[in-house]
């Protein structure tokens, strides 16, 4: 007797339907976008500690995803991991371009406030970040590491991903992820 679908399998099937629909109608991508936007935005926000930048990089992530979604194949990777992979690449690309992402200071937030067109919600989140001293300290330390170490630490401790999931996102063997994690922690210990 066939077992009924588990919720996770139903979810995957639903995503598969959306991906198939994207082949004929790209507006079907909106379902995927709505489902993953907040998660990807928060991930990028934790990596960059900068709301405006996170907004731009989230947009870039979904632009890339919408371009390649028709070629997306269900092999060994979930849609979620695929989007995290694109987001990680976007952050790393930005990191290489700018060398270092500078978290917003109180002066910059004050400047944003004086701008009439500044989004109030954006300012609220900036304030939330600045108030969270523990996050600011952790983010400042992490941002001094190499991008590959930043990614592994953020995914593990901020996103709560398992080693297997991180390996899937970063396209690395699980043992390599464990090694990166250990080295990243050792380097962070020296910094802190």
């Amino acid at each position: 007797m066939r077992e009924p679908h588990k919720p996770l399998e139903t979810e995957k099937l639903q995503e598969l339907v959306w991906i198939r629909q994207c082949r004929s109608d790209l507006t079907a991508f909106e379902n995927i976008f709505i489902k993953y936007h907040d998660r990807i935005f928060n991930y990028i926000l934790r990596r960059t500690a900068n709301v405006s930048l996170a907004q731009d990089l989230t947009a870039n992530t979904f632009c890339k995803a919408v371009q390649h979604v028709t070629g997306f194949q269900w092999k060994n990777i979930s849609l979620s991991a695929w989007l995290y992979r694109i987001a990680t690449n976007e952050v790393n690309l930005n990191y290489r371009k700018r060398k270092r992402v500078v978290p917003l200071t109180r002066d910059m937030v004050a400047h944003l406030r004086s701008d009439e067109e500044a989004d109030t919600h954006l300012t609220e989140i900036e304030e939330n970040i600045l108030k969270n001293q523990k996050f600011m300290q952790a983010a400042a330390g992490i941002q001094r590491l190499k991008p590959k170490f930043q990614a592994v630490l953020t995914l593990k401790y901020f996103e709560g991903k398992a080693i297997r999931e991180i390996a899937e996102i970063l396209e690395l063997p699980e043992n390599t992820v464990k090694t990166h994690l250990r080295r990243a922690l050792i380097q962070l210990r020296k910094i802190l």
Partner: peptide
């Protein structure tokens, strides 16, 4: 320290 420093979902 990292676990405590996690920024809550905004």
């Amino acid at each position: 320290f990292l676990q405590d420093g996690k920024l809550p979902d905004q």
